[in-house]
Structure formats: C-alpha cells, structure tokens
C-alpha cells in the first residue's frame, strides 16, 4: 500500500481533531495546553504532505518552511501558556 497525499491528509486531520478534542474537553489548563502541539502538528503534517506530493516547481519548500514556523509557534505558545499557568485563588497553592 503506497503512500499518497490522501493518507497524509488523513493522519494530519486525525492529529488536528485529537488536538481540538483535547483542548475542548480537558478542564485543566495543562491538559488543554498539551493539546496545542497536536493541533499545530496536524496542520504541519498536512503542509509537509502537500509540499511532498502536490507542489509546484516554483514553491517546493514552502510547505516545509511553514511546518518549521508552526513548530516554533507551538513552542512559543506552550512557553507562554506554561508561564501563565497558576492555580486559582481558592486553592491552597493559589494562596501561597
């Protein structure tokens, strides 16, 4: 079974949807934050797949380039989220 654009898009879509599910369904902040890399990873995989299987000669590496940008953006978003994470004022740790 050879790999074409369809399986790549399918895996990317599944990863994106799992990330969306995690962000939407988790109630804890770190839980929702962990879904962000899945969301952006799915989008990046689709970009790399299009760059590999359905690209024009003028813009061959644009998909890979934006996958790199998305990886950096993921790290920036998680770093900002981890910096902002703190318990609510009603919890013992929040009053510390």
């Amino acid at each position: 079974m050879t790999v074409t654009l369809v399986p790549v898009l399918f895996v990317g879509g599944a990863l994106f949807a799992t990330g969306a599910f995690t962000v939407a369904y988790r109630r804890s902040f770190p839980g929702a934050l962990a879904g962000l890399p899945l969301l952006l990873g799915g989008a990046g995989l689709d970009l790399v797949g299009v760059s590999r299987f359905a690209t024009s000669s003028a813009d061959r590496v644009a998909g890979q380039e934006f996958a790199v940008v998305l990886a950096g953006l993921t790290l920036a978003a998680v770093a900002a989220g981890a910096a902002l994470a703190r318990p609510g004022p009603g919890t013992p740790e929040g009053r510390r």
């Binding site: 109630r27 770190p30 890399p37 950096g72 993921t74 770093a79 981890a82 994470a85 703190r86 740790e93």
Partner: peptide, 23 residues
C-alpha cells in the same frame, strides 16, 4: 520543539499539581 514543550509541561505539572484537579 516538541521535546521542549514536553519539558515545559512537566515543569508546570510539578510546580502546580493542583492545576490537575479540574480534570
């Protein structure tokens, strides 16, 4: 990037275990 994300999340979970209570 993903290894750094995992280490940042690990650090957050260890610093604030109470954040998990909402789940």
């Amino acid at each position: 990037a993903y290894l750094a994300c995992a280490s940042l999340l690990l650090r957050t979970l260890r610093a604030w275990p109470a954040l998990e209570a909402a789940d």
